[in-house]
Amino acid sequence: MTDAITVLGARLRFGETAALESVSVSIPQGACFGIVGESGSGKTTLMRAMLGLQRLDAGEIRILGTPLQQGRAALRQRARVVQPIFQDPAASLSPRSRIRTLMNEVGTVLKEPHAATHERLLVILKRLGLPDSVIDKYPHEISGGQARRVAIARALLVKPSILIADEPTAGLDVSVQGDLLNLLQDIRRAENITLVVISHNLAVVRLIAENAIVMRAGRVVEGGEVGPLFASPRQSYTRELFAAWPSLASNNKGR
């Protein structure tokens, strides 16, 4: 089966800094894939490149086997396949538009009557545990957790086959983090969506992902199935990274 996302020899430099260096990744369809690494390791840059928001200096990215291209026609096609959930979801909602307006835009893009979009939206909101009243609010009138769910709802409204979530639990308290991860996992299974989770939080990736890569200074240090990767990392950097995560370190010791 064609991979959901294939990255081949991605290279990108910002001046003297290598943001991505020979990055090659294959993300299988229907899987939950984690990308971990410290701040500045190139996780978000890789995400932006996968979304077509950042051009590469060299290398290739394929979405469901189709090379990623610029241009409006390619963007329209891509929008129906891959959707992002940005790190700061509140900031990803236009501040001067009501949520209803933002959702209706999706209907316009899909060439779907607004009534049909609205009906689907109500189902999604219910699933995400959001009240219907949220659609008449402005983004600043809802909480951070609600904004994150609204951003997820908007992404799901497009019916994508790939969701890329950048730090999906950032800024949420621990109990809400767990709920959100379970929710993402449920949606992924039910809709057969490929979920790419980018996080510096190793616990999140360990909990939700089946495969993962570890990034450092724009390079993929190592990768593989999450179980063996976390249990016996081959690279010293991965070991250091895992050791620096107190809960994981103590959990590993206890095993």
């Binding site: 928001l53 891509r78 959707q83 992002p84 501040p95 538009s97 835009e105 316009t108 497009v158």
Partner: peptide, 26 residues
């Protein structure tokens, strides 16, 4: 370069709609 404009682009919202609805008010 703000997330909400990038999110609109990722949804393939028409550029004129993005300008009128999201750039102009801001």
């Amino acid at each position: 370069n703000l997330s909400f404009i990038e999110a609109e682009r990722m949804l393939a919202v028409h550029p004129v709609t993005i300008v009128v609805r999201h750039y102009l008010p801001n």
